[in-house]
């Protein structure tokens, strides 16, 4: 589904990713872990097409198509979803208008008619329940005045609305209390299927207790330096990242 080969990327001329390789197949859940500044968020931003980042080398194909040639909106239509670490507040744009515009552009890409008002409301209601998002929040401006936990739940709500093939969740667990963490993880698990895949980017093991990835990767200094099964995450939790640095001869 997703194939990243030798990906190099920079921001403001500073190279952050220095040759990332990763393959993700349908139905798989991957976790990318690593210390601060390793390039985890850069990787997710580059995959979603944030124009602030420049790709200098390498290639990324998504279902056989060249992902890097697509603008962010087309990546979304093709089935990429990025759950933001810091969801953006957009005063004046209501959640309803935002989601209706997004859903309709997805439908247009597939050659479908715009969604009817009643179907849209039904869809909103149904998907809100996935993450127990209050109706009041759905009627407000995008993320405006939402608490940290509400913002993250809102990300998963949008994911539920758009039904992506590949969801990249960037530190979705940061700033969440234990209840919110449970709700968000349950939401992600409910949306999991044989056809879609998830990449979870996280600092900590605790999210992985709920969302159980089969593959763990350690990103360090812009490269994936170690990959393994769930046991790798436990080892990182116990021993930190220093032993990996030692293995690398630092």
């Amino acid at each position: 589904m997703l194939e990243i080969k030798n990906l190099h990327a920079n921001i403001n001329g500073k190279e952050i990713l220095k040759g990332v390789n990763l393959t993700v197949k349908p139905g798989e859940v991957h976790a990318i872990m690593g210390p601060n500044g390793a390039g985890k968020s850069t990787l997710s931003s580059v995959l979603a097409g944030n124009p602030a980042f420049g790709v200098t080398e390498g290639e990324v194909t998504f279902n056989g198509k060249n992902l890097l040639a697509m603008p962010p909106e087309q990546r979304s239509w093709e089935g990429i979803f990025l759950g933001f670490q810091y969801p953006v507040e957009i005063p004046g744009v209501s959640m309803v208008n935002f989601m209706r515009a997004a859903v309709n552009e997805h439908r247009k890409y597939k050659g479908e008619e715009p969604i009817s008002a009643s179907d849209f409301l039904r869809l909103m209601r149904e998907k809100r329940e996935v993450v127990e998002l209050d109706n009041k929040l759905a009627n407000r401006s995008v993320n405006e005045g939402f608490s940290g936990g509400e913002k993250k739940r809102n990300e998963i709500f949008q994911m539920a609305m758009l039904e992506p093939k590949l969801a990249i969740l960037d530190e979705t667990d940061s700033g969440l209390d234990i209840d919110a963490l449970r709700i968000v993880s349950e939401g992600v698990n409910k949306l999991k299927s044989e056809d879609n895949a998830t990449i979870v980017i996280t600092h900590y093991q605790r999210l992985l207790d709920y969302i159980k990835p089969e593959f763990i990767h350690v990103l360090y200094k812009g490269k994936i330096v170690k990959s393994g099964g769930p046991e790798l995450a436990l080892e990182l939790e116990e021993r930190g990242y220093d032993w990996i640095k030692k293995e690398l001869g630092e």
Partner: peptide, 28 residues
């Protein structure tokens, strides 16, 4: 706001439409 623009586009809203939404929201 470039962040907001990217956020909207990452959900599949075209750049043109996203700009309009933000300009409209600004004045509303």
């Amino acid at each position: 706001d470039q962040q907001a623009l990217f956020y909207l586009r990452s959900r599949g809203i075209s750049e043109q439409e996203a700009r309009l939404l933000l300009m409209y929201a600004f004045s509303a």
